[in-house]
């Protein structure tokens, strides 16, 4: 492994992170992809990959991570987007819809209602819409 390259990377990344942290308008977002067996069966691996790619290409300040099953097997693949104390769940995801989802939800701060799933615990607190 080319560990010596990491020094330069560290400096560059530290610079960017310091700038980003100084910008108060950049708030905390987190995306969690449900990666249980059924999620994987319905394509959650490609959804996670696409989210990572689009977050990078849109230069968003978002932590992207994965978890075990959300228990929403009939609408996999599923992800939850967290912003401060809010949680919004999106289901039946396809790689083609990820960019629109990130632009609408994170860049513009609007809920993309067409893909949104109201589940207990998300900000709508409505029963599951299935």
């Amino acid at each position: 492994m080319k560990l010596d390259e990491l020094k330069a990377i560290r400096e560059k990344a530290a610079d960017k992170i310091a700038k980003r942290n100084a910008d108060a308008s950049q708030s905390e977002w987190k995306i969690v992809v449900s990666m249980g067996t059924s999620g994987i069966l319905y394509g959650a691996r490609d959804i996670l990959k696409k989210i990572l790619e689009e977050v990078e290409s849109l230069e968003l300040n978002v932590l992207v991570t994965q978890s075990g099953s959300f228990g929403l097997d009939d609408i996999e693949p599923v992800c939850a987007i967290y912003h401060n104390d809010e949680k919004i769940v999106y289901g039946k995801l396809k790689p083609e819809m990820i960019r629109e989802l990130l632009e609408t939800q994170i860049v513009n701060g609007n809920i993309l209602t067409s893909y949104r799933v109201a589940v207990p615990g998300d900000i709508g607190n409505k029963p599951a819409s299935e």
Partner: peptide, 9 residues
């Protein structure tokens, strides 16, 4: 904190 920076990825 730099784990998901484009440089490290």
């Amino acid at each position: 904190i730099m784990w998901q920076s484009s440089e490290l990825m």
